[in-house]
């Protein structure tokens, strides 16, 4: 009986030591898992912080690039204007007019905003027109007019090399802002909707502003004369739909003109 009991105890003791080994191993494993987890959590946090930092940097850079692009484009437009008889605020007004025409025409906000930025470059080709022609006081003779008219093609040639969306848009604007709805414009003599909407919009914005501004060779037209001319040129020089938009929202155009007066 005693021997039997001893045997049982021996077996239990053996079990006990196996159990101790197993639990020790389990404890060791759990500690390891905790360690791996803690290490992993710590690294995740570091990586997340690092990512956030990088994202912020990328965002700042993106903004920087966009701002730079806007500035370059605007400055190029201003250079174009400074070479000619236009004044500094002309490009700003044309930009604003173009944007609201674009919005009412049905373009989305992003595209309208891009057109606002691209339209100031419509006359960039003028930088390549000789001073003697460009700054001639008074009317151009026929050969001077021909030279002057090359500025649309010149603008196209300058900008067309770029693949940037904004500069591609500016290329269209520079190339087509002297086309007329009736096909009597230049340089291509495009007609109606063959003329890109960017060209049609900038054409109207540019002419409206030019007529209302005084130049060394001409007085500013009064509003009645401009409106009469616009009505006559509806479907001739200008896209009829854009003329309608212009008159339907006249207050907005006049408000822009007032806020960006030439000093």
């Amino acid at each position: 009986m005693e021997a039997f009991e001893n045997k049982l105890i021996g077996e239990i003791e053996e079990l006990q030591s196996k159990f101790t080994l197993t639990t020790q191993k389990l404890i060791k494993d759990v500690r390891r898992q905790d360690k791996i987890m803690a290490r992993s959590d710590k690294r995740q946090k570091q990586e997340y912080d690092e990512l956030q930092k990088k994202f912020a940097e990328v965002e700042a850079l993106q903004k920087e690039i966009e701002e730079t692009q806007k500035e370059v484009v605007f400055t190029m437009g201003a250079i174009g204007e400074s070479r000619s008889k236009e004044t500094g605020n002309h490009v700003k007004r044309v930009a604003q007019y173009s944007k609201i025409l674009a919005l009412y025409y049905g373009m989305d906000k992003k595209e309208a905003e891009m057109l606002k930025q691209a339209s100031p470059m419509h006359d960039i080709g003028k930088v390549a027109i000789p001073d003697a022609v460009l700054n001639k006081p008074g009317r151009f003779n026929e050969s001077e007019r021909k030279i002057m008219d090359t500025h649309a093609q010149l603008g196209f040639d300058m900008l067309n090399k770029s693949t940037r969306p904004l500069l591609q848009m500016a290329t269209t604007v520079a190339y087509e802002h002297h086309e007329k709805w009736n096909g009597k414009g230049y340089p291509q003599g495009l007609k109606g909707e063959e003329i890109h909407i960017y060209g049609r919009i900038t054409a109207l914005a540019d002419v409206f502003d030019a007529l209302g501004s005084s130049r060394v060779y001409k007085e500013a037209w009064d509003d009645e004369r401009i409106f009469k001319m616009f009505k006559e040129e509806r479907g001739e020089h200008f896209d009829p739909k854009l003329i309608d938009i212009f008159f339907e929202n006249l207050d907005e155009f006049l408000a822009i003109r007032d806020s960006l007066k030439d000093v």
Partner: peptide
């Protein structure tokens, strides 16, 4: 390395 690699290295 990821957590399961860490486990494997142990």
């Amino acid at each position: 390395f990821n957590s399961s690699s860490s486990k494997l290295f142990f």
